[in-house]
Each structure stands twice: as structure tokens, then as C-alpha cells.
Design a protein around this nucleic acid. Sequence first.
RNA 1: GGCGCAUUCGUCUAGCGGCCCAGGACACCGCCCUCUCAAGGCGGAGAUCGCGGGUUCGAAUCCCGCAUGCGCUACCA
Length: 492
Amino acid sequence: MSIRVRYAPSPTGEPHVGNLRSALFNWLLARRHGGRFIVRIEDTDQSRKVEGSVAQTLDALRWLGLDWDEGPEAGGAFGPYYQSQRLDRYHEAADRLLAACAAYTCTCTPQRLADLRKAQQKRKQPPGYDGRCRKLSPEERAQEREAAGAHVVRFAMPEAGETLVEDAVRGQVRFENPLLDDFVILKSDGFPTYHLANVVDDAAMEISHVLRAEEWLPSTPRHLQLYRALALRPPIFAHLPIILGADGGKLSKRHGATSVAHYRAEGYLPEAMLNFMALLGWSLDDKTTYLSREELVAGFALKRVGKTGATFDLDRLEAMNGHYVRALAPDQFAERLRPWLEDGLPPSVVRPLDGARLRAIGPLVQERIKRLTEVVDLTDFFFLEEPLSYRNKDLMGKGFRDNPSGALHALETTRATLAPLSTWDAGAIESALRALAERLELKPGHLFTPIRVAATGKTAAPPLFETLALIGRTQTVQRLDAAAGRLARPDD
RNA sequence: GGCGCAUUCGUCUAGCGGCCCAGGACACCGCCCUCUCAAGGCGGAGAUCGCGGGUUCGAAUCCCGCAUGCGCUACCA
């Protein structure tokens, strides 16, 4: 059997981590077995539609490298891929069900439904539609339809028996039919609900496997009954473990960012995001943590999808991102830095940034950052012309604590040592400064701290000698002078 | 309230009857390296496998209860 899977987002906002995780698993299954990955837009809820979310969704897929074989922009033989353009198919299906008495029109008002629910809850009964309109005769229903003007179509669930869901990750799950109420399949605005549209389209698009989040498991028996009533063959279902926030609840806005675009903007790499998401509910074996896209494809198997909820652990994501940052080829890393620097540096810095300079800076910071955004704070001094800001306390460091004159002397002798240096490179600077430390009878670290802060404005910075070499002699001397000047006037 | 799913170190997980007094990764702690910060190397601590009963020569692994958590219970998906 050829594998056809789909990602079926509804365009109600920026794509969520949980959604994209589902997309990823579907994509992996397709790529692993040479199947097709389809994107279908489930825009059946007119009221929740958010402008631009389809574009955002496609962007997220592209960013993660999840290419689709059919869907928006790609086309395909099973289109259209927007449910809002497939309304006739849902009506055809609903008509068939109506004709077969597997569905009926319902004119109960939202008010009646709300009251019903309230009363049921008060009596501690399971809430659900009571089947009022189902009990009516066809003539009565026709009458009410006319009188009401608007109606919905409800599916007539079997009133007895049970529905067995065969789930690829959970095994058999049993549901009692009488406990499932007659759900709406066609809304009064003529649009289908998820249940109908999903079933009709999955069948029409010959979807072989439905990998979706666990929250869908309870509605699967309804879907199965729909397949049966429509004489369609159901796909293989696999319900993916839910993604939890740090507090153990379902991941949602209150846990912080849930949109993948946010993580992209925060400087996470797509390869890290992909790897991280793949491990939310799946594992290759007992020890493999880092997997490339290719390894994920080669290793993915439904049998290795877990059943237990996976917590979205930001620390782990960040650690993985650091790993992927370090793994980048130096030139590639340098170029990836560019957008973040050009975005984060003050306007006084001339754009575009010089590529050679980026490539020189790259190696100094590559193993020091976990997220690309961090590069701005770590390297701004390479680009700034204006005076740096820092505290005199930091300038003196541990070695010259409460000893401004000592620090001053260190800076002045450093200047005197570096200014006339015949060769300006990291090696020459290092031997000069180490010799100086020895001459001043200072621990190297104690001497280097004031120099570092003077040159970079920071207590934690890239390696000193390479940094000075890159900054250049002129600016190094300038900054040493500026620091020496400041030591005379205490500021904190 | 009902129905469903789940329950192994703080986190992600490995484990599908003996190889496990439970393995890996992240985080944490210590040491080494070291000009700061990282990275890297080495080591450490951390889970009586939710609880209680069974089945079995033997259970984290199978069965039954209970507890807890989560999900669903819309003319939302």
C-alpha cells in the first residue's frame, strides 16, 4: 500500500509547536517509505479564520524543511486543498447520509442546547445532545426547518454497541456507542464541521495514515462511524502523545511561546528545532539524541512512537541548539550571524556588514552561543565606533578590587607595551602581554581583566588576544586610553 | 459528572518476563583544561520503575483494583 499522509492545519493563527510536531511525524513517515506528504487547509470555521495564517504555516514548514508533495502552491491531483473550496463534496456526503437516515436535520436553537447542557451538568449527567430532532418524524422535521429558517445536520450515532478503534500506537481502544451523542456534521452556515470534512477529505485524498495529536482519540469512534455510514475505508490511525508545558498541562500560550515562528526569531536553528520536536514522543533507541534530518527519516518508525505525554523542555531545546550552532561550518555560521547582527546592532553601524569581518569573528563566538540572537551582545564591540559603557568596578576586576591606581597602572603599561608592537596579531599580543604580567608580577588573569573590559566593555568576552588582534591597534589603544581616563573619576 | 489515555532519575526517554539492585541525553555538582565566558575531558549525585493485590521459579515488563495526571465532553479544530 502506498503511503499518503497529510498535515491539516486550520488557519487560526501562527502554527503551534504541537501542530508542527504532528506535521513532522507525518512527513517523516512519508519520506521514510517513499510516500506522499500532503498539506490541506481546514478552513471550515469562518469565525476563527485569521488572515495570513496559511502563509505563516507554509513558511514554518519551509523553514523546517518539510516539503510537501501536494497542497497549496504545490497543486496535485486530489485538489483543491482548501476545504472552503470543497463544500460541494461535504454536501454530497451529508445528502447521502440524510437519504440513508444516518443523519437528520436539527433545528434546536443554540439557546436550547445551552440550557440542555446546563441542566445535564446540574443533574451530573453527561452533557450531550438529547436527540430531540432525531425523534421527530420526517414531516415534523420538514415543518420545523421551514419555521426555523436555519438548521444543522447531525449524524445519527448507533444507539447501541461499541466502536473499536485500532490505534497504531495505543492498540485497541473501546468506546460505547450510546455514550457518544449525535454530533453536528453540517453547520447552519453550510460549512461542515471538522468531523465530516476530515473524513470526506481523507477518504477522497486516499490518505493511508492519520497521525494526529492524542486529543483526537476520543472523537475517533465518531469518525469511524462516519466512514462506515459513508461506505468509505478508514485510514490507519496513530494518536501522538500530547505535548505538555512545564507545569504538566497541555502546552498553551500561558507556558510562553508556542509558535514556531517565535523560536525562529529567537535564534534557534531549524535543524535543532526539528531534532527537538522529533524527540517529543519518539526515540530511535536508548542513547541517540542528535539526529540529522536524513537520520530522522531513515530511523523513523511508528512502532517507536511513545504513548506518554512529552514535556516541552526549553533547556533541552537550547542545549540542542548550542550543539547545532557549534556543528555549523565556520563560513556558514558567519553568514547565519549576519541577519541577527544587522538587526540588533545600533543604527550607527554601517550595513551591510563586511563578510570577511564576520568570518573572522565567527570562530571566536561559535562555541560560546546557544542561540543566534546572543551574538549581538557578545560581539557588538567589534562594530561600535562610539565609547563603550561599563562600570569601573568591572574594569578593576578581582585583581584590582578597590585599587584604581593599580588598574590604572596596568592599563597604562599595557598601552605602552602594545602601541609600539611591531607585529599586530594574536600571537605577538599574547607574548607581549604575558611578558608584561611577569614583569609587573601580576597573575595573567588579573592583568587581562582590565584589558578585556576596556576593549570589549564586558567581563565575559571572546578570547582576549584574538579579540584585540581583530579590533586593531588603533582602536585598542583608544579604548585603553578611555578606560585609563575613566579610572580617575569613580562612577559607582 | 461521564468517557478515554497515561504513570521509569528534575526533564526527554531506553526497557516489551531473567542480560536491570534499571541504560543514555539535557539540566545539576565536583575535578581537569584555562586570560573571562564557553567548549572539551573525567567523575559524581539523582528512579525502592505511582500505590496495593495477584500470575510466575522469576515482573519495570503480564492481569486486576486504587490513586494521580492529562485529554475529550461546542453549529472550534
